[in-house]
Simulated scan of single mutants.
Amino acid sequence: MTDAREHVLTGTRGTISAREWPHPRPRWIALVAHGYGEHIGRYAELAGALGKHGAAVFGPDHTGHGRSAGERVVIEDFEDVVTDLHTVAQRARSTHPDVPVVLIGHSMGGLVAARYAQRHGDRLAALVLSGPVIGTWETPARLLAHDSAHGEVPGIPVSPAALSRDPAVGAAYAADPLVWHGPMKRPTLRAFVRTLEDVARGGDVGRLPLLWLHGDDDRLVPLAGSRPGVERLSGGAATERIFPGARHEVFHETIKAAAFAEVTAFVDRVLGG
């Protein structure tokens, strides 16, 4: 696959760094929304698999993440993140007019993708959610309750071991200077709570095809909490693939090839090819 290109775009709260994995004649565009505390560069292997399937792949570092501007991991309002993602989508469409767009959101990016689909679903061909923060996710409210009682957010960073059964994934995550290794911050926790409520109230995505991927040993975003959110968003019509024993990042798990294949087979069904 062609080497990635970097774009610096004007976001809602400063510059946004976006990455493009080009394709000379793409059949579809994959728009990727990454998770909390990480960056789009961690999705190079997914981009390679999708590129072999005919996709041009685009995705931003969300505000406060990776190479984008902003205080680290601070998101005041996820509506701004959705708007920034739409700016990247517009860049992708200007590069490849009339090519269908499939939005892929992981974890926090799944929350962003869900809200994007509620706002801009008529511009999408399909939606893929991986370990999405949607439905009932208790972590933000629990940490904010501790904050209210004790005056500080507990300093609990993401455990690398919770991401994948592949120890190399955790080691690379722990050593990555663009990954946030500190605690969550109050503004972001509050924004999570608000946006979970907004998505719950925002209605379903109608006839937009939706694929849901999740590991059944996901302890960061438990499967049982995501299920009601996915069912509500899809109107009960989602295609689901639950991976036994897999942890939070199915695109970095020991079953990643199967996860990639689920995405490409789903896209083939949607696009008819």
Rank of each mutant, 00 (worst) to 15 (best):
P100T: 06
V101M: 07
V102W: 05
L103F: 08
L103G: 01
I104R: 02
G105M: 02
H106I: 11
H106V: 12
S107K: 00
G109Q: 13
A117I: 07
Q118R: 09
H120G: 11
G121D: 07
L124V: 09
A126Y: 06
S130H: 04
G131C: 11
P132E: 14
G135F: 00
G135Y: 00
T139I: 13
P140E: 12
L143G: 05
A145R: 13
H146R: 11
H146A: 15
D147L: 13
S148P: 02
A149S: 12
H150A: 10
H150S: 08
G151K: 04
E152K: 11
E152H: 15
E152A: 13
E152Q: 13
P154N: 13
G155H: 14
G155F: 02
P157Q: 11
P157D: 14
P160R: 06
A161V: 08
A161Y: 07
A162Y: 00
S164G: 05
S164F: 04
R165Y: 12
D166A: 14
P167H: 05
A168H: 14
G170N: 08
A171G: 05
A172F: 01
A172I: 02
Y173G: 01
D176C: 00
P177E: 06
L178F: 02
V179A: 08
W180M: 02
W180N: 15
W180V: 08
H181S: 13
G182E: 12
M184C: 15
P187F: 02
P187I: 09
P187S: 11
T188E: 12
L189R: 07
R190T: 14
F192T: 03
F192Y: 15
V193G: 03
V193P: 02
V193C: 12
L196F: 08
V199K: 00
R201T: 12
